[in-house]
Nucleic acid binder design. Structure first.
Lengths: 105, 105
DNA sequence: CGCATGTATGAGTATATGAGCAAGGAGTCA
DNA sequence: TGACTCCTTGCTCATATACTCATACATGCG
């Protein structure tokens, strides 16, 4: 049971484990967007973007909605943003502690 | 600059994006442990475990300390646990919303 | 219908990752 | 020194991932 939960956890985390996917989710902080808006904003190749979006949706991070020809994506749970904010905090602390080591040297 | 931060973020998240690495970090909730304690607890092959630990350390998630023959690992930042807790919450909500869909069917 | 637009997918390639086995330090003790 | 334990690293195989190009699919419009 716990093992299964941990597997699912790692899937969510792995889904965010790519710079472009982090960028996508960050871009969606501003709200729901269609692929045609995300694409020029991030400058990704269309098919590539489509696959990243699929990965994020499969992991439960994004939800999609079709409207006419367009597909709109949004983040499914606001906690995703908290998760990204936490990782930012972790990184910043890490950078500080590493630069501290450098100044000693 | 932001791109660089996002790359680092994705590295941290990717480092946690594997079931066994989630298990390792969860095991370290109880505090600092040496490899020889982690190994039997998780039942991983030694070299395999060693590499996962290295990955987590490279990502800044773990810190290590050598004491005699043993190497002790611990989580470097308590926010890592918050991050895992958040991902658990996200998963649970996801499971609920999916089972809701199933009950309709 | 024919055609344009927005998005997804199949196929191919390059690279990355995870696993196991065997060998290599590094520390400890006799 | 030699033997032992604990941990890491080199090598290799299998699999997974990311990317691109071309193509398919769906919708809307004239």
């Amino acid at each position: 049971m716990r093992e299964e939960l941990q597997r699912l956890q790692s899937e969510v985390l792995a889904a965010l484990g790519h710079p472009n996917r982090v960028r996508i989710v960050e871009f969606l902080r501003s709200g729901e967007r269609c692929v045609c808006e995300i694409q020029p904003a991030l400058g990704l190749e269309q098919s590539n973007l489509s696959r990243h979006l699929k990965g994020l949706r499969d992991a439960g991070i994004l939800e999609s909605r079709k409207e006419g020809v367009s597909v709109y994506y949004k983040v499914s749970d606001a906690r995703i943003f908290k998760l990204l904010d936490l990782s930012t905090g972790i990184i910043k602390r890490e950078i500080k502690s590493r630069s501290k080591i450098l100044t000693i040297v």
